[in-house]
Design a protein around this nucleic acid. Sequence first.
DNA 1: CTCAATTGAATTGTGCGCAATATAAATTAT
DNA 2: ATAATTTATATTGCGCACAATTCAATTGAG
Lengths: 159, 159
Amino acid sequence: MDSMGIMVRKQTAADQALRLDNQICFAVYSTAHAFNRVYKPLLDRLGLTYPQYLVMLALWERDDVPVKDLGERLFLDSGTLTPLLKRLEAAELIRRTRSTEDERVVLIALTPQGHALREKAKAVPQSILAASDCTVGELLAMKDEIVALRDRLNAVLEE
Amino acid sequence: MDSMGIMVRKQTAADQALRLDNQICFAVYSTAHAFNRVYKPLLDRLGLTYPQYLVMLALWERDDVPVKDLGERLFLDSGTLTPLLKRLEAAELIRRTRSTEDERVVLIALTPQGHALREKAKAVPQSILAASDCTVGELLAMKDEIVALRDRLNAVLEE
DNA sequence: CTCAATTGAATTGTGCGCAATATAAATTAT
DNA sequence: ATAATTTATATTGCGCACAATTCAATTGAG
């Protein structure tokens, strides 16, 4: 009966690992969607989707950068960024220009409207903080843990 | 000069809030993508995408359930689930049948192949644990924090 | 200098994710 | 019993995400 007892415990451990509620990946996945839904009404007022908002955040920190640079900062590739950037260009928030030094490079620069939108965006983090119902300190601590996890996962992907 | 000094500090706080590196939402967003990329090669062997894997996890816990039930457990709506479930049906992992009691309801049940896939899936959480380079305890603690955050965000959405 | 290899962006195709709408079945209110 | 409302699923359309491919520009090896 001992061997059977052991088998039962082993099976239980494997079963537990496959439970949705025990998966940190599902926790992260479903939280990302929850954030997206909380952001939506706020970003609608800015005329941005959530990924577009991330691109704008990156550009407000540093613009006049190649698509590649943006992709590295956001962990996105050209297949995602090219059409997204074309939509931001159509909205006249950015300009896309070929670099003269290296014709392969497309430089992304903010337009005056793109810069101006930053003022309206300043209200957003405050609203999110309120929705999260956490202190800034708690959120920053969690953020650091999650980023550390992300970086370890990304490290595995680079072999 | 005092009023100016205060203004500068206020601006700095708002600027900090808009920095990509300070946004927990971006941490969660980019970690979700990192998970997706780590899962991809593992799930390719099972013939599943990551969202399909989540659906299978849910069904392995309890099947013969309405689409609605699945949607509530995964925080997804019919617009996402209907086509995804049709693909799982085409792969013969599930069956979709109208309930006889309530014709509006579509019940999702696992096929024998769908049940069988669970055995192959048991290796997955182990690989993810290794990639995350954390102890089980650390991951579970983080998971609980993230889930708590998700639930607070979702609570705001229900007013 | 030349040609192969590499690089940066764009394109194509598939699969989410969700808002908005549609439709049919069930519930309720009168 | 009939009409109005609600519920469960499906459909359409748009915008990511990403793998795979293409193409032009640049770099590098001989």
